[in-house]
């Protein structure tokens, strides 16, 4: 799975967590909190959905600022 495919999968999840968000604005550089408005509980939902979709596990100390950091974590976890 390459980074672009993972981004597409993440966008699918974000579209459910944040239905009113314009997905065109979601890029690798998007800040999860300040740009996409993903607060701690939305993050919980994103994390659960990412775990289910990509069959990986986050540890409780994981912290991400940007979409790209999530993508990189998924790639590393799938190796």
């Amino acid at each position: 799975m390459n980074k672009e495919e993972i981004l597409a999968g993440l966008k699918e999840i974000i579209s459910i967590v944040k239905p009113k968000l314009d997905l065109q604005n979601v890029t690798m550089k998007s800040q999860l909190v300040s740009e996409l408005g993903i607060d701690s509980l939305s993050m919980l939902l994103v994390a659960l959905a990412v775990e289910e979709k990509f069959k990986i596990k986050f540890d409780s100390a994981s912290y991400f600022n940007t979409v790209e950091e999530v993508c990189d974590f998924i790639i590393a976890a799938k190796k």
Partner: peptide, 14 residues
């Protein structure tokens, strides 16, 4: 209510 939203999101997905 914030957790209710999480559960609703999960039911939408799964």
């Amino acid at each position: 209510p914030g957790l209710c939203e999480v559960l609703l999101g999960l039911t939408k997905m799964y």
